[in-house]
Design a protein around this nucleic acid. Structure first.
Lengths: 142, 142
DNA sequence: TTTACTGCAAATAATTTGCAAAACT
DNA sequence: AGTTTTGCAAATTATTTGCAGTAAA
């Protein structure tokens, strides 16, 4: 997967050290193609290199976010997930029953929302990673 | 203020016991007219009746939510706030710098958003208390 | 009187931090 | 070599819970 190499290269260019731990964390979330909790990333990394600790995973994830290479999404209820950035602004639909996060495209509507909060209330909304809770189709039926 | 009496009456009618603690918690959030954290509610109640504990405040707030008389809003980053319900669906604009929560009216847009997530992804969004983070007008300038 | 509710203190859960040792570059 | 990063264990923060006592109804 080329995506993680890009990320690693970018960090190296910025003068950061690439440790095996960082590499594994990046590979893990970049590969997954979805949103993962720190714990999930830890499980994966820890399986590959058991000496890796959870605090290192937290530090690395926060580091990636601070470098603008990943996004941290707080879904509420103590459910925090991370993902590498690779797409433009999108909407996260978070199912409150099964916990899955669906990434969908509703750019025009989001842009309109941002425009209105700006014009009417002077509020600059962070809409790059807005997440909305609700019930997904699967969970609705049952 | 009549609002809290309504709430108390409703609980009494449903057969719950109205303790001084519950009364004070309800008065506090109903009076404030804004969103308060459990800690803030606790400070107020505790000043009036020092024997009241934080766990009672938590229990009472969750109780009000479960009875549908208050809403709990997780703004992310460990910032959880409560407010009595008295208005229809609204949008919470949460300033990530100063922490203030602005309640605004953008019903048509929200409805449109709900309609689209439903039609296109079968996702039933909880839009009664959607909160969006960003920067408010005051914090933007500085 | 009955049993819902409270206070207390201890348990959780998720995340953060201090510090000395390890390891990128 | 020199500084960044890690591991470990302990600290934090926000919230929850068990249990025995208190008090609404």
């Amino acid at each position: 997967m080329p995506h993680c190499h890009t990320l690693i290269e970018r960090l190296r260019q910025r003068g950061y050290r690439i440790t095996p731990q960082r590499e594994m964390v990046i590979e893990t979330i970049a590969h997954s193609g979805r949103h993962m909790s720190a714990e999930e990333v830890y499980e994966e990394v820890h399986r590959r290199a058991p000496s890796t600790t959870l605090s290192t995973v937290y530090r690395t994830l926060d580091f990636l976010v601070s470098e603008g290479l990943a996004c941290k999404n707080d879904l509420g209820g103590g459910h925090v997930v991370y993902a590498t950035i690779r797409h433009g602004p999108h909407l996260h639909l978070h199912c409150r029953r099964c916990g899955r996060v669906y990434q969908v495209e509703l750019a025009p509507l989001l842009e309109e929302l941002g425009r209105q909060t700006q014009e009417r209330y002077g509020f600059t909304a962070d809409l790059q990673h807005l997440s909305i809770s609700g019930l997904c189709a699967d969970c609705r039926e049952t």
